[in-house]
Design a protein around this nucleic acid. Sequence first.
DNA 1: TTGGCTTTGTGATTTTTATCACAGACAAAC
DNA 2: GTTTGTCTGTGATAAAAATCACAAAGCCAA
Lengths: 221, 221
Amino acid sequence: MLDYDTQSRLLQQYPMLRELPAADQAELAAAASAIHLTAGTVVFDENQVCQGFPMLLSGNIRVIKAAPSGRELQLYRVMPGESCILTSSCLLGNTPYHARGIAEQALEMVLLPAAAFHALIEKQELFRIHVFHLFSDRLTDLMQLVSAVAFQKLDQRLATLLVNKPNPVHATHQALADELGSAREIVSRLLKSFSEQGWVKLGREQIEITDAAALKKLSAL
Amino acid sequence: MLDYDTQSRLLQQYPMLRELPAADQAELAAAASAIHLTAGTVVFDENQVCQGFPMLLSGNIRVIKAAPSGRELQLYRVMPGESCILTSSCLLGNTPYHARGIAEQALEMVLLPAAAFHALIEKQELFRIHVFHLFSDRLTDLMQLVSAVAFQKLDQRLATLLVNKPNPVHATHQALADELGSAREIVSRLLKSFSEQGWVKLGREQIEITDAAALKKLSAL
DNA sequence: TTGGCTTTGTGATTTTTATCACAGACAAAC
DNA sequence: GTTTGTCTGTGATAAAAATCACAAAGCCAA
């Protein structure tokens, strides 16, 4: 059961819900629960069954694949207002998760239990279309990722990563490596070469992009 | 408009369609058209808009990402009875394709135009659930692929590929390389090392697996 | 049977990425 | 201010994959 404040914030992040009939909105609010997690919490993990459909109010979820070696690769991030394709897929296909979700910062979210999610999907065309669209957007990203991992060199991928983050970029080299599925040393060396080209200025946990055009050119090769 | 024979073959490959009310079945048959393509035809390509929802009667579609260099990587194969997650995604999200589909052998398929597909999805829960399930299965494969490409060595991936094909495997080294997103020479050398281990016997366009257990062990590492 | 084409084998080399092993730099905590 | 822990820089080396360049082998068809 959601309190009034949570409900209004939910509607703010997911405006599509406003279009639903009042009865359905009330049903959703009754069935859902608010969840708070601290940074670093594992929200879901490989082979786990899916508990419900998450809608984020603040914070975000890093969805990753972890290799036995300890290396990891980020598949995507779920931001407030978005949905997790993996969760949708698990709910709709009744399959367990095939990746790990980690709260990147402190996380507030509303969890809609599986049954309520299914009911809503069946009943409300709008909700369904919304979920479909999110599904489809995410799939595009994933295909992009496959082809980047398969065909692009790490310098190109790193350049792409940097230009798609707000400047200056606040992250450790290790965090960037985890996002790319590579090792920290490689990222450090590549960043050094970028800085030697005059494309970035390096600082502790900070990368200031000074020549975004050059990075974009590399990333588009 | 489908003829009687095509319609009955369609129902055979997609039994779920039998569950639809007769009126909807008739509507589908009226809207859809039968399409025959020869081996090697490009069924759809990157940045193209999606024409309709394909249902395969015979043959299959290789869905690939092509790199500018000419290298390619197979994302998945669509077999009769299955559906193409990409097409679903494009139809549902109104986005263009992000990969290429190629008829591997001669291909017979029924194409349901976008409008009819949308109508059916909206109207028929069964059809919707069916599409969702296929969607979800495929997504699982794709995530598996991402993690294989990112973390596994080529010998492991080749071993996996081989044990998942009917024995003996009929394919050129180049075809296997294209499926893995690598180069022909690498595959040739890996196969040679497999054969030196006594795991396979090599012939022209043929690989006979003699020790499937060893290959599976490698692929599961 | 003799070309011509496709497929396969293989050496040599380079590029790219990963791994290991530290040292120094910096920031916060004591 | 010193300590402690995290973050970064970097050399040395190894491993994996890609690239180039042919040679040989097998198959088909004229």
